[in-house]
């Protein structure tokens, strides 16, 4: 009658049913299923609370563990945030890619403007501007110290230039190469200059940094596992006696493991919060100089910090790592403790 989860009790299989215990157990059988779920949940709640209580009993160790995990997680987190900022910046740069068409000398300004009108209808072109040779010379005089030298020239050596801005969809190296090809075949065009190379180099660098960040994340994630694993191992040693008693009175391995897994979860959560705090503070500290830098480039760029979503992701990952670290330690050390 009285058997828990597949437990075949001593009372079962006996010849004469014990009347007294039959009466006793009749009440317990009533609505047992709902009771079982209820008491399972309340047990989980209790274990969760007790494990927090235990962490509070040794605040220094808890804070130090959180700090270690937080620092370990803040590095990959910070890297990821900076990379996402780069991506945002890179998107701006990519759309600012331009193609300059240096026209042949004999082409008149009117012809240049006509060409510009034609090119504007090209599907890969978003915008067209014409820089006349007079304008170009004036700019050159203004921007450089060559003003005096340029004054000695008999005639303007500069050609008219048509500047194309490609549509965002075609602002990638492959489309640009084909666009360049077709532009070079135009009669009016002397030379085509593509301002894409440095953007490509930038993206190559970003992908190198991205891989670095992934490697860092893996290594530091491993470090977090080891830290929590070791802390859990010590906790198991401290509670060895209790584990023996629990096993003697019928505690399953799952029951014995539970408090340690919850402790791991809380270590992960605390560490994740520390990491989020560290990254936010660091980004805040960096945002001043970066604003100054962005203004000097006349860019509206602003450093974006941890979003709500990425904070949630960080906390989930750190809790998962905490749980996993505890689970590994528990698996290795705890199941081996048997009463003797």
């Amino acid at each position: 009658m009285k058997d828990y989860k597949g437990g075949r009790g001593v009372g079962r299989g006996a010849s004469a049913p014990d009347e007294a215990s039959a009466v006793r157990e009749h009440g317990a059988q009533k609505s047992r299923q709902t009771n079982e779920v209820q008491s399972y949940l309340s047990h989980h709640r209790k274990v969760a609370q007790e494990s927090i209580q235990r962490l509070r009993q040794s605040p220094l160790i808890t804070l130090m563990t959180w700090a270690v995990i937080g620092i370990a997680l803040s590095l990959p987190t910070g890297f990821t945030v900076i990379l996402s900022n780069f991506d945002q910046l890179g998107a701006n740069w990519e759309s600012s890619a331009q193609v300059s068409l240096f026209l042949k000398h004999e082409i008149s300004e009117a012809d240049a403007r006509a060409l510009a009108q034609t090119l504007k209808r090209h599907p890969m072109v978003a915008d067209v501007a014409v820089i006349t040779r007079e304008q170009a010379l004036a700019d050159l005089k203004k921007q450089s110290d060559l003003g005096d030298v340029l004054g000695y020239l008999d005639s303007n050596p500069l050609p008219h230039v048509v500047v194309l801005t490609p549509t965002p969809a075609s602002a990638n190296s492959r489309s640009m190469a084909s666009l360049r090809q077709s532009l070079e075949n135009l009669n009016e065009v002397d030379r085509v200059q593509l301002d894409m190379l440095w953007v490509e180099r930038l993206f190559a660098m970003i992908s190198v940094i991205e891989r670095g960040a992934w490697t860092l994340s893996l290594l530091f994630g491993l470090a977090v596992l080891l830290v929590i694993g070791n802390t859990t191992r010590l906790a198991i040693e401290n509670r060895r006696e209790e584990i023996v008693v629990v096993k003697l009175v019928g505690g399953t391995n799952a029951f014995v493991r539970r408090p340690f897994l919850y402790t791991g979860l809380w270590y992960g959560l605390g560490g994740g919060l520390v990491a989020a705090l560290l990254v936010t503070v660091t980004l805040f500290w960096l945002s001043g100089p970066i604003d100054v830098l962005a203004q000097s480039y006349e860019s509206g760029f602003r450093l974006s910090g941890l979003t709500f979503g990425s904070t949630l992701l960080l906390l989930s990952v750190s809790m998962l790592l905490g749980w996993l670290g505890a689970w590994l330690a528990v698996r290795r050390h705890l199941d081996a403790i048997e009463p003797t």
Binding site: D3, Y4, K5, G6, G7, R8, G9, V10, G11, K247, L248, V249, G250, G251, T252, N253, F255
Partner: peptide, 10 residues
């Protein structure tokens, strides 16, 4: 793995 359930009855 059934030992815990047995022990609950002793």
């Amino acid at each position: 793995r059934q030992i815990p359930y047995f022990r609950r009855h002793v």
